[in-house]
Design a protein around this nucleic acid. Structure first.
Length: 496
RNA sequence: GCCAGGGUGGCAGAGUUCGGCCUAACGCGUCCGCCUGCAGAGCGGAUCAUCGCCGGUUCAAAUCCGGCCCCUGGCUCCA
């Protein structure tokens, strides 16, 4: 069984074979640090995270690089009146974004390179392109001449002649072809452009512009173009040719198309062998969710409100390249799915813990189901990272466990243990869900002891027939986020 | 206009690459039953889809071919 992925370059599902059979070079086009991260970004992160985890499960050594674009007009537009600078604003958003990533239990990338720290590499790359005849200088700016790269348009399947011009009017005047794009931009940033992106609390555009970073180059002082960074950082931290390049599908053109052109022109080698594009998340009004439309739910809000596991369950409940809509309803459903999964896991753990490891009870239907479910999960992941199906397989495992527990007076120890292992290995290790988080820290917490104290009191009230009082106590605990369930063997509870 | 991707039950969403195991998964919702002081959780059962429309190929089509309708994204900063 081998991994197959849908390659945007060919628009076909292909067998995945990295250059080096033991390792995978993975690059993800990260964020421009000009706004808080929203759920749409999280969709990309979580799917890339799961790809990373699955590749490791398959035995590959994964080198994962994810950039931050910390030099950009939109960042300058966020400069406030309190004396901060483009660099300060960017650094502050980088911190927030890394915090958001941690909150979603993402595996760390090996490197999070920033544009501001790679200007020398960018300048080198631009020089190479000029030397090789693919780029030209004009008034201190440098442009890539798209007519020199025959395959220009191969990713987005477009003809440069039919494309609309890229860049501002001033740029148009100095470019040879309308579709040429900037590799290096002379001078600082334009205050009119900044003004367009500014919010309420912004500093006057003229003042903000003063804080924009510029660097020396062979063409004079200036700033790197938008696309060149990813090429430079990908080559610097990975290699001239990488295996997988992932990004949002909104980046197909022009960003990724331009990356291919400038990278392959510079090295003569294939830039990325497999291009995977994550579909944009739709907002409740069915428009795409995006920073520029301002219709987003931030990662911080969502993680706080629903918890990281429900958020991940939501994002993984749709395959990465399909349409997905965020709404209170779809999110609520994801919460239910996650709850069912976690309860199933906890039931299996509790049941296994409650019995002697030496018991000889065997439930053949349980034992047979588990390898089948494992196979289903692996097949789903290998089929272009079909996380929806993978999640379904795990929910099937919940069914199997529950049925076993309900239908048998004596439990199958080994069967339950392998179910628990499957939850942990696939749900935890691959999908990055965190089971039994609250109870995970070993000893019994004070909170638990106090909840038990209250529940013991409630049992006394129930025994005395004071149901009204008992229900009050249960409601009070519920209000504090403690879910109470009565069973034949007494109460059970869990923290929500 | 050009490029890309979609339209599957009340909702959500797999399956379409390589047609048959799809009388269509998993979940949510609704209804009934078991259990329960009640509730929840769980279990059992039920409800719910001629897979956008029309035509074709085939022993066989959600899956292939042709036409049509509708939707979304990209072509401008955006994961």
């Amino acid at each position: 069984m081998t991994l197959r992925v849908t390659n945007s370059l060919t628009r076909e599902r292909e067998r995945f074979e990295p250059q080096d059979p033991d390792s995978v070079l993975l690059y993800y086009c990260g964020l421009t640090t000009s706004d808080p991260a929203h759920l749409g970004h999280a969709r990309g992160w979580v799917h890339v995270d799961v790809m990373h985890r699955w590749l490791e499960w398959l035995g590959y050594d994964v080198r994962h690089v994810e950039n931050f674009t910390d030099v950009n007009e939109k960042i300058v537009a966020r400069v406030g009146e309190d004396g901060d600078t483009e660099a300060d604003v960017a650094a502050s958003y980088v911190r927030d974004i890394l915090r958001d990533m941690r909150s979603l239990n993402l595996l760390r990338a090996e490197v999070y390179p920033r544009v501001s720290e790679h200007v020398p590499e960018i300048v080198d790359l631009v020089e190479r392109l000029i030397d090789r005849g693919y780029a030209y200088e004009a008034n201190g700016s440098v442009y890539f001449d798209v007519t020199t790269f025959e395959e220009y348009g191969k990713l987005s399947n477009q003809d440069p002649d039919e494309m609309e011009p890229q860049g501002s009017e001033d740029e148009q005047a100095e470019k040879r072809n309308p579709a040429d794009f900037a590799l290096w931009k002379a001078g600082g940033v334009d205050s009119d452009e900044i003004e367009q992106h500014q919010h309420d609390a912004a500093a006057p555009a003229e003042q903000a512009v003063e804080t924009a970073q510029t660097w020396d180059s062979p063409w004079g002082r200036g700033r790197p173009g938008w696309h060149i960074e990813c090429s430079a950082m990908s080559m610097t931290h990975l290699d001239d040719t990488i295996d997988i390049h992932v990004g949002g599908q909104d980046l197909v053109f022009p960003h990724h198309e331009n990356e291919i052109a400038q990278s392959e022109a510079a090295t003569g080698e294939t830039f990325a062998r497999y291009w995977l594009h994550v579909r944009l998340l739709d907002a409740p009004d069915e428009e795409k969710m995006s920073s520029s439309l301002g219709n987003f739910e931030t990662v911080e809000e969502a993680a706080e409100r629903y918890g990281p596991n429900a958020v991940r369950t939501f994002l993984l409940s749709t395959a990465y390249h399909n349409e997905a809509t965020y709404s209170p309803e779809t999110m609520a459903e994801a919460e239910e799915r996650w709850d069912r999964l976690e309860r199933g896991y906890e039931r299996a753990v509790d049941a296994a813990d409650s019995i002697d490891a030496r018991t000889k009870v065997v439930d053949q239907s349980l034992r047979d189901a588990i390898p089948a479910i494992r196979e289903e999960f692996a097949a789903a992941m290998n089929d272009d990272f079909n996380t929806r199906e993978a999640l379904s397989a795990l929910l099937e495992l919940v069914n199997v466990v529950n049925r076993h527990l309900d239908e048998h007076a004596e439990y199958d120890y080994r069967g339950l243990r392998s179910a628990v292992e499957t939850f942990e290995e696939f749900g935890g290790g691959v999908l990055g869900l965190q089971f039994g988080d609250a109870a995970d820290d070993g000893g019994v917490s004070v909170a638990e002891e106090m909840v038990e104290l209250v529940l013991d009191l409630r049992e006394q009230e129930r025994a005395a027939g004071n149901y009204e009082r008992a229900d009050e106590l249960r409601d009070d605990l519920e209000a504090l986020g403690v879910e109470v369930q009565d069973t034949d063997d007494g109460y059970e509870y869990r923290f929500e």
